[in-house]
Design a protein around this nucleic acid. Structure first.
Lengths: 198, 198
DNA sequence: GTCTATACCGTGATAGAC
DNA sequence: GTCTATCACGGTATAGAC
């Protein structure tokens, strides 16, 4: 950002383009030819900035994972009653998903064909594990229903949260507001869909 | 099934193998070479049974879509109070996901690069639309909370349900029982995760 | 920093023997 | 019904000019 006008690529700006195409076509469905056309430079020019396709994937999923793991270190996730920490992490996960949408989308679609993909899958499992422990504590406190397997509940909760990447698209006017969507997700997850009167 | 021993392939049996590999490696990440190795026959032999890779995909997603749309025609989905029909469709969707797991998994991962994929995406949207209308009716009856956008609620509900394909694996001993898992999903979706006492 | 040209390999698909 | 041999093409990646 030293120059005012930025018409040459850096690994960062190239990543923005690449991640968009990866999400449109799928990582395996994207060729360097696709990337070069989307970036407006030749295939070989891409190799001047990054070592190859997989480096772009690694940078992208790293960014997503950093965002997610960052949540677990925030005050709201380490202090207070377990149920409140669970809700905090849920809400913040929704927010990170929205803020880092293309990167998290890519992360959630990784299959495990390359070493980078397998590493990403392992780190994701680690994140799930950490969250699962939080839920377990909330059950012990009597704040979450105990009649449901905790691993199952974690998976369903984050299955719901992660499904955001399938349809959420940020609007130019900033609507729907990020915190409002996060509120709705938390509300539905913890209070359910049924009308309050039951 | 006229012959007792079945050691030669039909399009159907070949599909079973192909869908497994598609789900392991992703459709785009799977080559005919991969398929031939998994099937134990040569690449060219595969072309004797099917016209190509895309036909295998088409057969697979068709089967998944047939299963899902079939639900909407069942008595439990067309008769009774809207809220009960919503719960019925939710429960049955879980059951179909489990029963046709590899086919539905593949369906839920298509990106839209080929005509077959775009057709699949369109039919999926159609299914979501039908379900969304059911939810709308349940809200009108006062049985589902009205303070949440109905399209959003539908997406989150089915985001949760569909996330099953990411981790559910049928056990050899038939555990966890299919209907039990479906019950849990319905319970969490409609009553929420919080302990009943609140 | 970007280009053209090219190496080299794996891809989906076909021909034709058995 | 399965095979080997082969095709044309597009894939990732590199070399070297500008």
């Amino acid at each position: 950002m030293t120059t005012a006008k930025r018409d040459t690529y850096t690994p960062e700006t190239l990543l923005t383009v690449a991640v968009r195409v990866f999400n449109e076509r799928g990582y395996d469905g994207t060729s360097m030819e696709h990337l070069s056309r989307a970036a407006g430079i030749s295939k070989s020019s891409i190799y001047h900035h990054v070592t190859g396709k997989e480096e772009l994937l690694r940078r992208a999923v790293s960014r997503a994972l950093d965002g997610l793991f960052g949540i677990l270190d925030e005050p709201g996730a380490v202090r207070g009653r377990a149920i409140e920490r669970v809700e905090y992490v849920t809400r913040r996960t929704v927010e990170v998903l929205m803020a880092e949408l293309p990167y998290v989308t890519l992360l959630l679609r990784v299959r495990g064909n390359t070493t980078t993909e397998r590493w990403a899958l392992e780190r994701r499992r680690e994140f799930d594990q950490r969250v699962s422990e939080l839920l377990k504590a909330a059950v012990a406190d009597g704040d979450l229903r105990a009649d449901v397997d905790i691993r199952l509940a974690t998976r369903l909760l984050f299955g719901m949260v992660n499904s955001l990447v399938e349809w959420y698209r940020p609007q130019p006017d900033g609507f729907p507001a990020e915190d409002q969507l996060a509120d709705t997700v938390v509300q539905l997850a913890f209070e359910g869909m049924r009308a309050s009167g039951r």
